[in-house]
């Protein structure tokens, strides 16, 4: 009941990316992974969150972050994550945890009472706590990993899980290097870690992937590229406008290397560099924008980027030409008045 109530609030939340085509597509991948007889139990919601995460509640509510979609390279990779979350659901991990917590103290009821007593609306707090319930222990994560892999093995997809964990480790290394943080040793988990380490997952998935027949089937990379390129700005916005330059650049580059560079992806990388704005970044960004507009899919904002980076680096004349082009291509953009003012000065 509490979960259904939470889901109602969730469904109308502005944090949900409302895109029916994407939802249908993701449901299709889940169905191919776990089987059409099972997948009807899940309802997928895409949440605007740049972090790599997905989860599934005991009533079938499945959450997929935009940050997860940004980091996947094929349907096969996506199927391992969706299969893993569905594994938690099938093994009733979240339900058991929910029950165990409800047995001792009725936190939700207490919170509601506290809200009534202080006159505050505690609904948001309740949602946060409900979602917080679904953290599992290391053994459960491992069980879900193996069940997820078993789903994929009996699906039309090849098993492609180890590459995901390898890239996550490389992304984390890139972030830590830039921020001068100590790199993590990932061989064995610490006492409080809730998940097996990336290295452990990489190791056992590599082993499963090497089994005979595990690599049979189409990984659905082309289809995945097409469906996610359509909504690229939505799934990359949080990464590009966040403050983890090295991590974001790693994610964009690895997608480009695996799926090819179109105008929109190259534009995304150009934005990342322009927004950091070190002197050398402006020159690099301009090169990316200029390349982007020669490729299919470049948005009008690429001309905005060329204009701004050109003017910042002293090439006012060409900068103004590009900004005029931007206004011609997107006359009703949300910053057209500000751009016009820049052009007048």
């Amino acid at each position: 009941m509490e979960m259904d109530e939470a889901e109602r609030g969730f469904r109308d939340s502005p944090q949900i990316l409302h895109d029916e085509r994407l939802k249908t597509y993701l449901s299709g991948v889940l169905c191919k992974t776990v089987g059409f007889d099972r997948c009807g139990a899940a309802r997928i919601y895409v949440v605007k969150d740049h972090r790599f995460n997905a989860s599934m509640a005991p009533n079938g509510l499945m959450i997929v972050n935009t940050g997860l979609l940004a980091r996947m390279h094929s349907e096969a990779e996506l199927s391992t994550v969706l299969g893993h979350e569905f594994g938690h659901f099938e093994l009733r991990h979240s339900l058991n945890r929910f029950r165990a917590l409800r047995k001792g103290t009725d936190w939700l009821a207490w919170l509601g009472m506290a809200g009534a007593a202080t006159g505050n609306d505690m609904t948001a707090t309740q949602n946060a706590i409900i979602l917080g319930f679904f953290s599992y222990n290391r053994e459960q994560e491992k069980d879900a990993d193996f069940l997820g892999a078993a789903y994929v093995r009996s699906s039309p997809y090849p098993l492609r899980a180890s590459a995901v964990w390898k890239r996550l480790a490389e992304e984390d290394d890139a972030t830590r290097e830039e921020r001068k943080l100590r790199k993590l040793k990932r061989a064995t988990p610490g006492a409080t870690d809730t998940h097996p380490t990336g290295a452990q997952r990489f190791a056992y998935f590599s082993q499963l992937e090497a089994e005979i027949g595990a690599q049979n089937g189409d990984d659905g990379q082309e289809q995945f590229r097409e469906e996610t390129s359509r909504i690229l700005p939505d799934i990359f916005a949080g990464l590009v406008k966040g403050n983890d330059f090295a991590g974001a650049d790693y994610v964009i580059r690895s997608r480009g290397d695996a799926l090819g560079w179109d105008g929109l992806l190259l534009h995304t990388r150009a934005e990342l560099y322009r927004l950091r704005g070190n002197p050398r970044d402006l020159i690099t960004a301009r090169q990316f924008y200029e390349k982007a507009i020669t490729l299919p899919g470049a948005p009008p904002e690429s001309w905005r980027g060329i204009g701004l980076t050109a003017m910042r680096t002293g090439d006012t004349e060409n900068g103004k030409v590009a900004l005029k082009e931007y206004l011609a291509k997107a006359p009703t953009s949300n910053d057209s008045a500000a751009i016009k003012m820049l052009l007048e000065n």
């Binding site: 605007k48 969150d49 406008k241 403050n243 910042r312 910053d335 500000a338």
Partner: peptide, 26 residues
Amino acid sequence: LLPELADFFEKSFRAQNQLSDYTLIE
């Protein structure tokens, strides 16, 4: 440049409040 102040503000406001959801209206 003047229009870039909006980008700079967005990046700062996002970092300060740990936002994933921010839309520039105008």
